[in-house]
Simulated scan of single mutants.
Amino acid sequence: MNNNETLHKSARHVLLAVLAVLPAAVSAGPSGQAMAFTCAGCHGTDGSSVGPSMPAIAGMDPEVFVDAMKAYREDERNASIMNRIAKAYSDEQLKEMGWFFASQRLNLFPQTYDAALAERGAQLHDEYCEKCHEKGGRPGDAGTLAGQWMPYLHYSMEDFLNGKRKWPRKMQRKVDAAIEAAGDTAIPALINYYGSQQ
């Protein structure tokens, strides 16, 4: 076999290898990062929201992200437009987006908070919330509370308390205990505490 035949045979093998993987590459669709760009208007390009009624989702546990998106998709979670948006994505696409946001660094923005309420909120957090929301509510498998926008936390708690959002396991019992201990100031105190965490 001469050099020319060897070259043609090698080129043919390379071409066959490319053709074999091309359908998989084409069918793979957009990356999690590309799909996440559709979230930028509300949640920021990296998941660090700059709008106080929109949650920051950078650094979020990917399973928490997927669970939230599935709840929106199934109309099990109160939303303005998220339920319509979530319906556009498959389970696999949600996982890819979740891993993208999990890999992003959470950038927090200073908020105005009541120092006395935040101090009481720190005590309530330590007693009732720390077990699930570890390290003062830092990103984890129970979501992100530390540094989260206070208006968003307020709206979320209203949804839980008004029955518009399903309570996660054990959360209602803990919130009820905090309210019993601190009365009407319990929720504002916790919100101010989380808002104070940078």
Results as ranks from 00 to 15, higher is better:
156 S>D: 09
130 E>N: 12
56 A>I: 07
49 S>P: 00
46 D>T: 09
36 A>N: 05
27 S>Y: 13
106 L>M: 08
82 M>F: 06
25 A>M: 14
90 S>Q: 09
195 G>D: 03
146 A>T: 02
54 M>S: 09
94 L>T: 01
66 V>L: 07
9 K>Y: 10
15 L>R: 10
17 A>P: 05
171 M>F: 10
159 D>A: 12
64 V>H: 04
131 K>Q: 14
191 I>E: 02
153 L>C: 00
196 S>N: 03
24 A>N: 09
14 V>H: 06
164 K>F: 11
52 P>V: 04
149 W>D: 00
146 A>F: 03
9 K>S: 13
165 R>W: 10
24 A>K: 05
87 K>E: 13
194 Y>M: 05
94 L>R: 01
101 F>V: 02
172 Q>K: 15
170 K>L: 14
93 Q>T: 12
147 G>C: 06
110 P>M: 11
93 Q>N: 09
68 A>K: 09
103 S>T: 04
25 A>G: 15
116 A>T: 12
134 E>M: 15
98 G>Y: 04
184 D>C: 06
37 F>L: 13
149 W>A: 00
116 A>N: 10
94 L>F: 03
197 Q>G: 03
195 G>W: 04
43 H>E: 06
29 G>N: 11
24 A>W: 12
40 A>C: 03
107 N>C: 08
67 D>S: 15
135 K>N: 14
90 S>T: 15
161 L>S: 03
